[in-house]
Design a binder for these strands. Sequence first.
DNA 1: AGAATAGTGTCTCTAAGACAGTATCAA
DNA 2: TTGATACTGTCTTAGAGACACTATTCT
Lengths: 242, 242
Amino acid sequence: MPDAFWQPPSILLAVDLVILTLRSSKLHVLLVERGIEPYKGEHALPGGFLNNVDEGILAAAQRELREEANLDASQLHLEQLGAYGDPGRDPRGRIVSVAYLAIAPGLPEPEAGADAAGASWKPVEEIDSGRLELAFDHRWILADGIERARTKLERSSLATAFCNEPFTIAELQQVYEAVWGVELDPRNFYRKVQGVPGFIIPVGAERRTTKGRPARLFRRGQQTVLHPPLSRPNPLTTSEAN
Amino acid sequence: MPDAFWQPPSILLAVDLVILTLRSSKLHVLLVERGIEPYKGEHALPGGFLNNVDEGILAAAQRELREEANLDASQLHLEQLGAYGDPGRDPRGRIVSVAYLAIAPGLPEPEAGADAAGASWKPVEEIDSGRLELAFDHRWILADGIERARTKLERSSLATAFCNEPFTIAELQQVYEAVWGVELDPRNFYRKVQGVPGFIIPVGAERRTTKGRPARLFRRGQQTVLHPPLSRPNPLTTSEAN
DNA sequence: AGAATAGTGTCTCTAAGACAGTATCAA
DNA sequence: TTGATACTGTCTTAGAGACACTATTCT
């Protein structure tokens, strides 16, 4: 029990970014190679400390997005994941990190030529298969970010944040398949996506150059909450797993 | 851009608790009356600073749950909501608060006879109708907590955390009705709830004393993710609202 | 018997999933 | 024409919602 002379402890606050995108139909995350100790040379989520005591947490996340990933926060989906503050998560001392989830469309440049050298997109599969290790507790932050994206695809229009406008329905389907890690029937996907009012809007001009029949082009609709939802295929229940 | 002599700013870290329960079929939240400035005399969420630099954030939340609400964290659902750290949210300086959502079954005692005098259950309706104002940004934290509970009722067994065991299906229905703020058809509710494998388990002994036919009693099942989900009645879409 | 609460059955409609078939391009 | 991709239609089944009905208690 704190007495009259007790003072609350001071803590260092950082932000970390889980930036997801789709590259060649696979879910990727932006990682940086750490230039300083601890974990020097290892891969980590981009992030950093608050600049000063007056900087907002979201503002810090937006700044890091620009500095470390060369991305413009105003064009991206950005939401808070939560605070990660286990004592001992950072060997330098008590550091609490607020993690943010950012969703970016496929970028033209392979990676950002930003301040932080060594930023690169990595397939998330390499991390949760254990082939690629992350510094600190970033593996768990990433897992939480992916899980957040997975569930939000069902009832929100988050999937369109992975796409450059205009996009085709097949591109949108690739988003769902990559994030959920499943295959979807294109025919049913077409019907369902088109049936959600305000999800995607056909842009007058159609077609695009590939092989085969040209696809209609769409842009994001105004609706952010999807009804009916695009439900994820049944996860196995514990009783069904055998 | 930080130079070589730059040091990250130190910050004070607090935890705040959104503790929800059901009292006479209405959703209630536990509030304390602040005994010190700022906002002295006003209502606020229970919470407080980290005790020391080695205390975990979750541990601090569990401690506050015990100190301020006299509740045993090991018996309760407790999950993190997120970090609230806008500069200016606390007039004492830069204080970042990590909010937690706790779900408690209806307690036998009307309120906790704990250290913090003046703790009391308030209907959440009084707050978001604006009749009761909260200190700091606690109104928004509470709103986020309620929203989290609402969405988690659909796909998780969170609803049972509001119930003392054993419980009846009608009691469980009241949870859904109070949190969602809707009326549900009891007959359809029975069918759906019973149809979710592992959600609720009939405890051998049935019946209970009321007026009318005795109700069968249930306890929580082992399944935490519900399939099929209990879907919330359609929110009006923007196009439907007129 | 009547009121009250608990629980079942049945019908309709929407939406999910499976899958056949058609359309429009390039080579 | 063939191959490839885009898109449409149709059937079956699961689940949502509406609502009539039966069951078991108390007074």
